[in-house]
């Protein structure tokens, strides 16, 4: 069974007189444990698609299932609960909490979302911080580390609660090419190691090359699916 199923999903935005079709009748099945990229021109609906999959946004039409659960009818609270239990997020602007240390940022989903007891948190947080190479910076605040480091911390935060799925909307857009490459390498390494599913959107061809499966969106529709030679499918 696929991890994610979209059936005839559309998302319209009504802004005054005009209607924008951000997604049109999208049918999509994504398998678990894949490293998936979504590409397409600006305004093609990449962010909207990721938001719908990640329960941040609801389709105006169609059905979305994630990990066997219909998620398109959730109310705010249920959606938050589902995201906390199943989805990790990596943002373009890193979005670390400035008042928390590196350690506390990674710990946040365990404390404020999952209610994991204190004695079980430390080991998991340190394991992730080690994996992203930030263990020695754990007591710094986000303002004291570089952009690439921030995104590594964000990767650790997205993975700390063992989600089924990690969504990353343009995770490298605010990074220089060296840092961008490192972050993508890290994401791929973690995906292999933890058997999580990663879906990320990007404009950067060098980043796209790292993906196993690449979907192309154009004007709210999926127009192409490519798999990298020598990998799955």
């Amino acid at each position: 069974m696929p991890l994610i199923t979209l059936n005839n999903v559309s998302r319209r935005y009504e802004t005054g007189e005009t209607t924008v079709h951000a997604l049109r009748d999208v049918n999509l099945q994504l398998d678990a444990q894949a490293f998936i990229s979504i590409v397409g021109p600006s305004g093609s609906g990449k962010t909207t698609l990721l938001n719908v999959i990640g329960c941040l946004d609801k389709p105006t039409q169609g059905a979305v299932s994630v990990n066997g659960t219909r998620v398109d009818g959730f109310d705010n609270r249920d959606a938050a609960q589902f995201r906390g239990d199943n989805v990790g997020f990596i943002f373009q602007n890193f979005n670390l909490l400035p008042v928390l240390t590196v350690y506390e940022n990674v710990e946040y989903p365990l404390v404020m979302v999952q209610n994991v007891p204190e004695n079980q948190r430390k080991e998991r947080v340190m394991r992730l911080l080690d994996a992203v190479g930030m263990a020695d910076q754990k007591d710094k605040y986000p303002s004291q580390v570089s952009g690439g480091q921030k995104q590594r911390i964000a990767v650790a935060r997205a993975l700390v609660a063992d989600p089924k799925l990690v969504l990353a909307d343009e995770p490298t857009a605010n990074l220089d090419s060296v840092s961008a490459h490192k972050v993508i390498e890290l994401m791929r390494g973690m995906q292999h190691e933890l058997k999580t599913t990663f879906i990320f959107s990007t404009h950067d061809p060098k980043v796209v090359r790292e993906a196993e499966i690449v979907y192309t969106l154009e004007d709210g529709q999926i127009t192409n699916r490519e798999t990298r030679a020598g990998l799955t499918n």
Binding site: G54, R77, A80, F82, G84, F91, N93, N95, M112
Partner: peptide, 16 residues
């Protein structure tokens, strides 16, 4: 606002 968006996105319940 954007911090609120972040913690809400990663699953912090509205009551919290």
């Amino acid at each position: 606002v954007s911090e609120i968006g972040t913690i809400a996105a990663i699953g912090t319940l509205p009551s919290r």
